[in-house]
Amino acid sequence: MKTNVGGIDRVLRIVAGLGLILWALVGGPVWAWIGVVPLATGLLGSCPAYSLLGMNTCPMKKS
């Protein structure tokens, strides 16, 4: 799996995912469990939607 999610993007995904999951746990709407998706993509560093759209927020590595 190729990494295509960069630093700030990863942090925002993890924070948003955790926030939505916590909201669902304290009685929020069922749809708040969608927070699992940004949390997983943030932790793994790879987003399937970015791959499909040809996007990449990871900085290029210098050789």
Results as ranks from 00 to 15, higher is better:
W33D: 06
L20T: 04
P38S: 05
K62D: 06
L22T: 10
T41W: 04
K2V: 11
L12E: 10
P29T: 14
N4Y: 02
V26L: 12
T57Y: 08
W33V: 14
K61E: 09
V15P: 04
S63G: 02
S46E: 09
L44E: 05
V11H: 08
T57C: 05
N56L: 01
K62E: 05
V11P: 00
L20D: 01
S63H: 08
V37P: 02
G45D: 08
A32L: 08
V5W: 01
L12D: 07
L25P: 07
P59G: 13
G28E: 06
W33G: 06
R13P: 03
I21F: 07
A40H: 04
W31R: 13
L43Q: 07
A24H: 14
I34Q: 07
V30L: 15
G19S: 09
N4K: 01
G35S: 11
Y50T: 03
C58V: 15
G42M: 03
A40P: 00
V5S: 03
G17V: 01
G42R: 05
M1T: 09
L52C: 06
A49R: 13
S51W: 13
G28N: 07
I14H: 05
W31F: 15
L39Q: 02
T3M: 13
G35H: 05
T41N: 08
P38F: 05
A49L: 15
N4W: 00
V37N: 05
G28C: 06
N56V: 00
M60P: 11
V26P: 00
M55W: 15
R13G: 00
L12C: 13
R13M: 01
C47W: 01
S46R: 04
T41E: 13
L44H: 05
G19F: 06
G6V: 09
I8V: 15
L52T: 03
V30A: 14
M1Q: 08
V26M: 13
R10G: 00
W23C: 05
D9W: 07
L12A: 11
M1P: 09
I21S: 02
V15I: 14
I21H: 08
G54S: 06
